[in-house]
Amino acid sequence: MLTISRELVDLIVAHAREDHPDEACGVIAGRDGVPERYIRMENAERSPTFYRFDSMEQFRVWREMDDRDEEPVVIYHSHTATEAYPSRTDISYASEPYAHYVLYSTELDQFRSFRIVDGVVEEEEVKILDVEG
């Protein structure tokens, strides 16, 4: 199950809508599986059907997470014409076995989360925490 704050969900959705019809992507870093620090990434492909982190930006972000003892708890990207389900390319390039792969469909306003390990996709429940006051 992915437990995530409303604020982080809103940031992902806003980024996806802003970049629509291109796919948007990013990371939420955290510790012990808790997503905390939102990092918006450049889609180096600037494409409505593909995304790829810019290699230098990824290097800086991954090193920063390492320095802070964080991990990529969530890796998100948007689909802009299809449902929020991992595509064949999403599955074949998934390379963080401990990450929650979040997909948001701007077309269908769907927010869903998956584990993708060794080519096997498992959808998981998303629990959104609303902060009081």
Binding site: R52, Q58, S87, R88, T89, Y93
Partner: peptide, 10 residues
């Protein structure tokens, strides 16, 4: 030398 799998998909 650092190896990082690209984060990519469709």
């Amino acid at each position: 030398v650092t190896v990082l799998p690209a984060v990519a998909g469709g």
